Amino acid sequence: MLDLHLSSGLLYPHLQALGALELLGVVVALMLGGMVKGITGIGVPLVAMPILTHFLPVKLAVLLLSMPIIIGNIPQALEGGEMLRTVRQIAAPLVGTVIGNVIGVSVLVALEPHHAQAASGIALIVAAVLLLAAPKLTLAPALVQPVGFALGFGAALMESIASVPGPLLAMYLIASGATGRTFTKRIAIILVVSVVTLITTFSHGAHANGADLAISAAASLPAIAGMLLVRPLRDSLRPVVFRGVVLAFVLAAAAQMIWKSGVL
């Protein structure tokens, strides 16, 4: 059972130690992530993560972004019903994400802070390159399950280290023929299961508690505000161009994270 005392958690002591401008920076990072997601559909963590690491250790930034991912995906996961049927269809990547998150969180907790920052930066670069390249693959029926497990596992590692599981999952679902609502429902279910596993593993291995989850849930508010703020602009901007600019920013920010870590 999760401990609800603030002082025994991970996020509260670090956030309490931040100055007013630094806390504002955290809020702005979450809001910018929401604004970009509102226009392009790119996940909040891809944009918010490199900014948050200026104010929080990578491990805490991952934890802070966990509930915004869940809250943002639950409505899509439940849309249209047929949950059991859908879960059976994506069983392979689901199993891969559970195992990947258990291993990934263990690795993240064990890493030194500068190594964790470098690993997060590399994961962000990989995610941005995958989205920029937008590879279009087609999987033979015999490969759907094994590839689903492998990419689910890889996506969970990226989730644990940098909160960006989306690109690998999107590649798999598109290659396996998922489109439209089927795509959004399947990826939403996988993401919810993935992050629930992440939080559960964090609570055991890194001493996260109920207060951490409450703070992470509160972090959803700026992201939602950002999405609502740009809604009037969504149809007047060219998402493809905006997406490219955003991903270029992510590449630059992630490279800066690696440089700042000192591993080079």
Rank of each mutant, 00 (worst) to 15 (best):
H5M: 07
L6M: 11
G9L: 01
L11K: 13
Y12F: 15
G25R: 04
M31W: 13
G33Q: 05
G38W: 10
T40M: 11
G41N: 07
P45A: 07
L52E: 09
H54K: 04
P57H: 08
K59S: 15
P68F: 14
I69R: 07
I69F: 09
N73R: 08
I74S: 07
Q89C: 06
A91V: 10
T97M: 15
T97E: 12
V102F: 15
I103W: 01
G104Y: 09
E112Q: 14
P113T: 06
Q117C: 02
A118C: 07
A119R: 04
L124I: 02
V129Y: 01
L132Y: 11
A133P: 02
L139W: 02
A140T: 12
P141F: 14
P141M: 12
L143Q: 10
V144T: 14
G148T: 11
G154P: 02
G154L: 13
A156P: 02
L157T: 04
S160Y: 11
A162N: 10
L169R: 14
Y172G: 00
L173V: 12
L173T: 11
L173Y: 15
A175N: 11
A178S: 12
F183H: 04
T184H: 06
T184K: 10
K185D: 10
R186I: 04
I187H: 03
A188Y: 12
I189N: 02
I189L: 15
I190G: 04
T197G: 07
T200N: 01
T201E: 13
H204Y: 14
H204M: 02
H207F: 11
A208N: 10
A211F: 14
I215N: 09
L221Y: 02
A223C: 00
L229F: 15
L229K: 06
V245F: 09
V246L: 07
V246I: 09
V250K: 06
V250S: 06
A252V: 10
A253S: 13
A255F: 12
W259R: 08
S261L: 03
S261T: 02
S261N: 00
G262S: 04
